[in-house]
Design a protein around this nucleic acid. Structure first.
Lengths: 220, 220
DNA sequence: TATAGATTGTAACATTTGTTACACTTTTGA
DNA sequence: TCAAAAGTGTAACAAATGTTACAATCTATA
């Protein structure tokens, strides 16, 4: 996948892929490469470019004043880095970015991004859709987390996916436990208890809701 | 505060207030008013306008297929509603919006928003800054929630605010407990134990970090 | 098909957190 | 200035969740 293509795929989703392949990227950009282990950005760096990770894998790490690492996340290409921060009030990198493999990054200046947004509504929609979807999934996850008990999380999750009394967890118990921020055996146990209490049926990732009222009582 | 002013204050933050006051709002918009109890939007409605709540207070409520309310949030003017969703892939209202008081809403069509964004970089920055800041605070909160134990949440929170060995909680214990999603006495107890163990000093919202290593051990 | 690896359910026990109640302090507003 | 309200720390006990271990099942691949 060449860089232009990648760029259009990620940021300008309105055109079909074959059409994109024939487009010439007219956006002013630079391409930088980093060797494994190199720093791509330091925490607190002013963000004046859009960073599109086009090849490789990076680690973003939040370091405190005293040098302790308190948060870490790995990101694989293709993915834009810190998109939200480019336009945020405090437009500094919130974390250090280190190349975990050899990486290629497409840099587009804030001015170029603004120019492109003004020129191409598709680019605007792509950029907005990206940050919007990101905010949306953060907010979804936060709603799950704000349910205090595991059974409440389950109730919230399956009620959201309720299709005429049936639900599909859409992922295995191990991942779901991680998504909920709880231990797998604890989630397993909670589901078992809800089945035993006749509130739901459950088998192999899918199930049925038997008592809506009981589920509702777990919430909030 | 007139509607134009409100609009510029919220979405176009680059100009000083006195300058804003003299501006004429050239953005194509409609103003709608709703009586207390009226529905402003239904869950699933297609979002084709930016909704600026300029007066009043609304309730956003997520209702499941089966009619259960599983999430609720109150929003007071001035505040834009569902900004992220206007450009999201699934651009439907995620919740019902009901007027809790008599409300006024400024409606700006997606086309008008795009036009304005293309025309006025300040508007773009305002819009982006808003969604970006929103995403940022969601993400901050999610990091706290993803720390499993209360002491880990405390450790993460104060390390983030560490200024040369001192920290300031910036809010009272009651609010902080709510922010963490735990009970107040539980938070109180956890802090007391950390003080007793000589890990931190604490008094009236402020404190000092005595053992960085012990704090670090709580994380993740 | 056979087999190694991943996923799942379950159990017993340890640990953490929630719950409730109360006394004490600080803040607020009349 | 005083009384009421809000905020705080603490304790004892209940409840929920984590931890660890193991066996059963499913899945992918040689």
């Amino acid at each position: 996948m060449n860089s232009d293509l990648l760029f259009f795929c990620t940021m300008c989703r309105e055109k079909p892929l074959d059409e994109i392949a024939n487009l010439k990227c007219t956006i002013d950009h630079k391409i930088k490469t980093y060797k494994k282990g190199e720093y791509i950005a330091f925490q607190g760096d002013h963000i004046s470019n859009l960073y599109m990770l086009s090849k490789g894998k990076v680690k973003m790490e939040i370091i405190t004043d005293s040098g302790l690492s308190i948060f870490m996340e790995e990101i694989s290409a293709p993915y834009p880095l810190a998109t939200a921060f480019l336009f945020a009030e405090d437009n500094c990198f919130p974390a250090e970015v280190v190349a975990l493999e050899d990486c290629e990054i497409i840099l587009i200046s804030k001015q170029a991004v603004e120019k492109q947004i003004a020129k191409c509504p598709g680019f605007l929609r792509g950029y907005m859709a990206f940050t919007a979807n990101q905010a949306q999934s953060l907010s979804d996850r936060l709603k799950i987390f704000s349910q205090k008990s595991i059974k409440a999380k389950i109730a919230y999750y399956i009620l959201q996916r309720d299709k005429k009394g049936s639900f599909d967890l859409e992922q295995n118990i191990t991942s779901l436990a991680e998504y909920f921020g709880v231990e797998r055996p604890s989630l397993s146990r909670a589901i078992s208890e809800m089945v035993k209490d006749g509130i739901i049926e459950y088998k192999g990732g899918k199930g049925k809701i038997l008592k809506y009222d009981s589920l509702k009582e777990f919430l909030e």
